[in-house]
Design a binder for these strands. Structure first.
Length: 850
RNA sequence: GUCUGCGUAGCCCAACAGGUAGAGGCAAAGGACUUAAAAUCCUUCCAGUGUGGGUUCGACUCCCACCGCAGACACCA
């Protein structure tokens, strides 16, 4: 190898060598302990930027580290390849989604391969392949048979841009999570996963996920939104069904002065039948997007219905309103209103001049608002005098005794609607027959394959439905003409079990039990916080469902979760408003930034998440072609703690490059070969300098090992930098012992740095004459004896202020330390009385005196 | 509005379990090498930890209040 560090020459060679030897292939039958490292499923969007890369580099560092620790590591990668963008591209560029997806996968794969990732590519698949979705259809039918899948007419969130239904989780601020269009409310037939059946499991099992970030668990718990309360039914005049409400505050029952129902509630519809004004009020509520509501959130509006409800305890007649703030999707879509103890009801009562009856007395009662805290009941008949907590129980008991209500557990979580009226997704394997109803496709006929000859027209509706022949089929039960289901599955279904399929990509069945049981759960899952609810909740649910129908044995898919921070980059804009990519910007000495092409001065905007719209995504390829991927990997790991955002800086990349250059010269300027037995134990060293160097080596090994385990990659790299700096001082030493230690240090450094910078360390490993490959070499043990100091700097403080530093031998007794400190510090103590001495062994002595 | 995380040198970041505020990097300045530049190497500079209290012998670290930034949730009855 040449004298100069030339990553461009050596990186491809090693990548090919590793691939040819198959060193990253995971074995399903190995005596070694297993370790499953996985980064979140990538959507193949084509070109990647360094922000995407952070995710895969972290995973790769862990995978390589664990491999070197002797684990049988599974580290696969594949493609979440169904979804809307392919159809949008079909409309825009007249290219078939299949073709577009294939090209994107190729592009992205080649970009990712630049990073030298230790991926087992033999397990690669894309979800758009029939050989994948066939199995999904298969267990979908199993889930149907187990009652975990059903279809029904339902209120749905309709995205008018993507022309499809969205799940509740996929509506953000009243807008589609991908299109950003305000969703509309529609009623249509929908396929659902019965996720609420597992609501309690999904909630309770969060406690067992101790290696997940606390905030992700909190977000999921909030999303599931379990609450306990009372459900009961008001008698309503001229309405036989009565009005069923749910409340978490049964203790406020005697303060109810009216009721509110959602605009979609049947009682509202009944009101609107003969009342055009009511109808227009309901229309107004539905037209209002949630986001607009957020702006006018203070504006509670209502419409008084002709119905009245009878208070179940007092018998008093109270009015029923249609309220724009009542949600049909939560509870029963109707609420008992207690203005004195609920802020919304209070605002509403003020506006419509309704009575406000205080029934709870607490501390700090507000003058002009509801008191929502707990307290003691007043004016509450037989419940007067009870505290809120007792009253809740007593009131529920009252209703249960009178058979008019019951204690109820309610969830915010709704069943997961998975029907999508789109082409590029997994076909739902069912057939609608006029005489037999909805019947599953026989398993031997799977997969129900997508037709290739479809027309995809902007806003043109469901391409599968519009296909001339695809949906025509004979009913598998009665043989008469029937129609295929033309909805496809939400692509979140595809990504809810892919991690299990990686364990057995060739299996004829959806999953091979032995393989899945061997590998699951994923030991370390790595991805962005943006999936805290959506993907992670769905995947947890599908895992529980797969367990129920016998495909897996685990109840949770991901043992540990690491959420890495976003990568930010400055945005540059021309006066014309065009965004310029950071790679095309030249930074002048005058501190100004100019566009490389036109030399135009650019406006520099704040750091933002790398995105297409801001054109601030830094593509890795030009950087890899300049620095090599090890430099990029090193920088990415070093620049910031992994959970925090990383501000991309090309100057920082330069620093990483320089460091690797120094590591290179540690080997090539010293010019040596290694003798493995050439290690002097600590006990064999007497010279202070030698001991220090030995100590540095083993302290670094200790720190790097523990830092990786704790995901502190930035400090781990810093420790390697320190070691390299320390070794650098001895590069030209002629002292025999120093040279031996130097060699030990270099060997250690290469091993420690290997997970982060695998190519350069592998090459240098060869260059120093090792017979093995570093990628197949076990992680180094550190010598505990060599990490212990024999001398330490003891600090002497007076009243907490630093006065003196003493070099003393380690392990001094408290008495000796105190004595030495007092002696050394005597001049400072003239005229003072020593009150107390605090001794922290091997650290400091603090003398309290006055 | 609620919850979470973060505020340390010009910048990115360290600091074990409360015990010397500085490990590492970037930038800057000076120097070496060079015909020169780049690259490389050496040296140097810089803060008292967002603000105000409290606990303690001792607080970046723990507690309380506030300010700022980021993210999540936001009429869930």
């Amino acid at each position: 190898m040449s004298e100069r560090y030339n990553p461009l020459a050596l990186e491809p060679i090693w990548q090919k060598s590793w691939a040819d030897k198959g060193v990253f292939a995971a074995s399903n039958s190995s005596d070694k302990p297993k370790y499953y490292a996985l980064e979140m499923f990538p959507y193949p969007s084509g070109n990647i930027h360094v922000g995407h890369a952070r995710n895969y580099v972290v995973g790769d560092v862990l995978a390589r580290f664990k491999r070197s620790q002797g684990f049988n590591v599974l580290h696969p990668l594949g493609w979440d390849a169904f979804g809307m963008p392919a159809e949008n591209a079909a409309i825009k560029h007249k290219v078939h989604p299949k073709e577009w997806t294939k090209q994107n996968i190729e592009q992205m794969k080649s970009d990712l391969k630049l990073f030298g990732l230790s991926i087992d590519w033999s397990r690669e698949f894309a979800t758009c392949e029939p050989s994948y979705y066939k199995h999904q259809q298969s267990f979908f039918i199993d889930m149907f048979k187990a009652g975990l899948v059903y279809s029904k007419e339902a209120h749905v969130n309709w995205d008018p841009v993507d022309q499809t239904v969205l799940a509740n989780e996929q509506v953000v601020d009243g807008k589609g999570w991908r299109s950003g269009a305000a969703v509309e409310r529609r009623t249509m037939k929908q396929w659902f996963f019965n996720i609420t059946r597992y609501a309690d499991d999904l909630l309770n099992d969060l406690d067992k996920l101790t290696d997940w970030p606390e905030r992700v668990r909190t977000m999921q718990a909030n999303w599931i939104g379990r609450s306990e309360g009372l459900k009961f039914t008001f008698k309503v005049n001229n309405w036989a069904d009565g009005l069923t409400v749910y409340t978490t505050r049964p203790d406020t029952i005697m303060g109810v002065t009216f009721c509110s129902v959602a605009p979609e509630h049947p009682l509202a519809a009944e009101t609107a039948k003969n009342d055009p004004q009511a109808l227009s009020f309901i229309k107004e509520c539905q037209g209002l997007g949630t986001s607009e509501e957020a702006i006018e959130k203070a504006d509670k509006k209502g419409y008084k219905t002709p119905f009245t409800a009878t208070h179940p305890i007092t018998g008093i007649e109270i009015p029923i309103y249609i309220g724009n703030f009542v949600l049909m999707g939560y509870g029963t879509g109707a609420v008992m209103a207690v203005p004195a103890h609920d802020e919304r009801d209070y605002a509403f009562a003020k506006k419509y001049d309704l009575p406000i009856n205080v029934v709870i007395k607490g501390d700090n009662m507000p003058d002009d608002n509801a008191y929502i805290g707990a307290g003691v009941l007043v004016d509450s008949g037989e419940f007067t005098g009870l505290d809120s907590k007792t009253a809740k129980t007593k009131v529920i008991e009252w209703f249960e005794a009178n058979k008019t209500g019951e204690k109820t557990v309610n969830y915010r979580l709704r069943d997961w609607g998975i029907s999508r009226q789109r082409y590029w997704g997994t076909p739902i394997p069912f057939i609608n027959c006029t005489s037999c109803g909805t019947v599953p496709v026989p398993k031997e006929e799977l997969p129900v394959e997508l037709p290739i000859d479809v027309e995809i027209i902007a806003g043109g509706g469901n391409p599968l439905d519009l296909h001339p022949t695809w949906k025509n089929v004979d009913c598998p039960v009665c043989g008469k003409a029937a129609l295929r289901e033309t909805d496809t599955m939400d692509t979140f279904v595809d990504s809810s079990w892919y991690f299990a399929r990686y364990t057995c990509v060739d299996s004829e069945k959806p999953l091979d039990k032995a393989a899945v049981d061997h590998w699951l759960p994923v030991d370390q899952y790595i991805g962005g916080i943006e999936h805290a609810v959506l993907h992670l909740l769905y995947a947890r649910f599908i895992t529980k469902a797969l367990k129920e129908i016998g495909y897996v044995s685990v109840y949770e898919p991901f043992k540990a979760l690491l959420t890495q921070g976003m990568v930010l980059s400055p945005c540059y804009r021309t006066t014309g408003g065009e965004y310029i990519n950071p790679l095309d910007v030249i930074h002048g000495d005058d501190g100004k930034s100019r566009y490389k092409v036109t030399n135009e001065e650019l406006e520099v905007l704040a750091n933002e998440k790398m995105s297409k719209s801001k054109n601030n995504g830094v593509p890795p390829r030009p950087l890899v072609e300049r620095y090599g991927c090890d430099t990029l990997r090193l920088y990415t790991m070093f620049c910031a703690p992994i959970e925090r955002t990383l501000e991309w800086s090309e100057a920082g990349v330069d620093g990483a490059w320089r460091y690797l250059g120094r590591v290179w010269s540690l080997v090539h300027e010293a010019g040596f070969t290694v003798n493995a037995e050439d290690i002097i134990p600590m006990a064999g060293l007497s010279d202070k300098k030698h001991k220090e160097l030995k100590r540095k080596i083993h302290k670094t090994a200790r720190k790097v090992s523990s830092d990786i385990e704790k995901f502190q990659f930035n400090t781990m790299v810093a420790a390697c930098m320190e070691l390299a700096n320390a070794l650098g001082e001895h590069k030209d030493s002629t002292d025999q012992t120093t040279q031996t230690l130097y060699r030990e240090g270099v060997v250690m450094l290469l091993q420690l740095l290997n997970p982060v910078a695998p190519h350069i360390t592998e090459q240098l490993w060869q260059d120093i004459g090792q017979k093995t490959w570093l990628v197949e070499t076990l992680w180094p043990e550190f010598d505990m004896a060599a990490t212990e100091d024999d001398e330490i700097t003891m600090v002497v403080q007076i009243n907490g202020k630093l006065r003196e530093k003493l070099i003393v031998s380690a392990g001094l007794s408290k008495e000796d330390a105190e004595q030495q400190a007092l002696q050394a510090i005597e001049p400072h103590l003239t005229g003072m009385t020593v009150r107390k001495c605090i001794v922290i062994p091997d650290r400091l002595v603090n003398i309290v005196a006055n």
